[in-house]
């Protein structure tokens, strides 16, 4: 009986809480791809070599081998590029929308902005505290290839768990950055 009770307690403690939407995807798109008249989804089914390049660069590759760039276009010109990135943790997944000024891609360009679109019931207050401390300001204008340092900037002003969330968000931005730098072609 003791084992059953301990098992039940462990299961409850380990259970990941439900997902909550912090910013609707449509709102993130409107904010990060402003002025776009049309949109396109560019899906890349990665070869083993490209998956390895990503993995070598940042220790991550998409689990199903697919990276999707969402392009905002005006008069057939790409005005912005957006990626939705998921970051997993033992507290459940976060989802980020990372928008880029294309600037030629393949090494050019810069981050236009980052929105945290999803968290979980448990992580939401931590994420909100990190955001309130100005986390996403640290990414705006960051050149592609430059390491994100949002967590470093907000950690002195927030508690431990919001600081940890900031580290996860840094990681997501770093993954998006590697995908954009290594795989996006205008």
């Amino acid at each position: 009986m003791k084992t059953i009770l301990l098992g039940a307690a462990a299961a409850v403690l380990l259970h990941i809480t439900p997902t909550v939407i912090l910013v609707k995807r449509e709102d993130a798109v409107a904010k990060l791809l402003p002025g776009a008249e049309r949109f396109a989804a560019r899906e890349l089914h990665l070869s083993s070599a490209d998956s390895r390049r990503l993995h070598d660069a940042v220790g991550w590759e998409p689990a199903d081998g697919v990276v999707t760039f969402y392009l905002g276009k005006r008069q057939d010109q790409v005005t912005g590029v957006l990626l939705f990135m998921r970051v997993d943790s033992q507290h459940g997944p976060l989802e980020l929308a990372v928008g880029y000024d294309p600037g030629g891609g393949g090494g050019g360009g810069s981050i236009r902005g980052v929105e945290v679109t999803k968290a979980t019931v448990e992580t939401k207050p931590w994420v909100l505290e990190a955001l309130k401390a100005g986390l996403t300001n640290a990414y705006r204008g960051l050149a592609v290839g430059q390491a994100p340092t949002g967590a470093e900037k907000v950690k002195p002003h927030v508690a431990a768990m919001p600081g940890y969330m900031a580290e996860l968000i840094d990681k997501g931005v770093m993954h998006a950055d590697a995908a954009f730098r290594l795989l996006y072609r205008p």
Partner: peptide, 27 residues
């Protein structure tokens, strides 16, 4: 994921497909 259902193994070279999408579909 997606069309990759058709190909369980990664392709030899990265395959790129692009399609128009509406704001609603992005959401």
């Amino acid at each position: 994921a997606g069309e990759a259902m058709m190909m369980q193994m990664p392709p030899e070279t990265t395959m790129v497909t692009e399609r128009p999408i509406s704001m609603a579909e992005m959401g």
